[in-house]
């Protein structure tokens, strides 16, 4: 025996429409925040590995002989400034000023690229000096930690290019604004991780 259901109201699709849950963007940003916190745990494990293995150079050149702090300071400056310029891009996005968003995003991309070039250059230099990823436990932990951070920066830059295309095609729509907010969380998060990297790995490494 079957029960007859009442006919759905006109225009009913079974889906919740966009204007019925106007806080959709907030949910997405919060979900992305949860992803970032889980990424924190990934970096925490890498920091723990570095804390445990960071002194085991096993005959390979030691950190104190290779680290150049003025070089690291320049990398730090690039990444910190790029965090700031992304903030400026967000302010322009809030003002719906497309030209400003493109300009500041471009600056952020250039600073991020500068950081990444410096980092890869440093890796090549260290490897030539005999401190390669496979040389010792300490250097494996070093490349694992810093390389993961660098990969995140690289991913952020690819995301920036994709978002650039989105913005160029569709303008500052609600969806693009939410994407921009997620990327801004991601980019600021990478700078926060870098604070821990330069403090624990580089500064405490040369002491």
């Amino acid at each position: 025996m079957s029960t007859e259901l009442a006919a759905p109201p006109a225009g009913y699709t079974g889906y919740i429409e966009e204007d019925h849950h106007h806080d959709y963007g907030g949910d997405v940003v919060f979900g992305f925040w949860i992803y970032i916190l889980s990424d924190c745990i990934l970096f925490a494990t890498l920091f723990a590995v570095f804390a445990v293995l960071g002194g085991n150079f096993a005959g390979a050149p030691e950190a104190v002989e290779l680290f150049e702090l003025d070089y690291v300071l320049a990398e730090t400056a690039l990444l910190l400034l790029s965090s700031f310029t992304f903030g400026m891009a967000m302010l322009e996005a809030n003002k719906k000023n497309m030209k400003g968003v493109f300009t500041w995003l471009g600056a952020t991309f250039a600073l991020g690229a500068g950081f990444l070039v410096m980092e890869v250059n440093e890796f090549i230099h260290f490897t030539h000096e005999g401190a390669a990823a496979w040389s010792s436990g300490a250097w494996s932990a070093f490349y694992g930690l810093i390389g993961t951070h660098g990969l995140h920066v690289f991913a952020g830059m690819i995301w920036m290019i994709v978002l650039w295309v989105h913005l160029w095609r569709d303008g500052l729509t609600e969806g693009n604004h939410v994407r921009l907010m997620c990327l801004s969380l991601f980019w600021h998060f990478l700078d926060i991780i870098w604070i821990c990297v330069f403090s624990v790995v580089y500064l405490m490494g040369v002491l």
């Binding site: 806080d23 907030g26 949910d27 919060f30 903030g87 302010l91 907010m181």
Partner: peptide, 18 residues
């Protein structure tokens, strides 16, 4: 705040942070 949990900043805030 326009979205729950996603506040906007101001130039002054970012410059202070920097």
């Amino acid at each position: 705040t326009t979205h729950a949990g996603a506040a906007h900043g101001s130039v002054r805030e970012y410059v202070t942070g920097l």
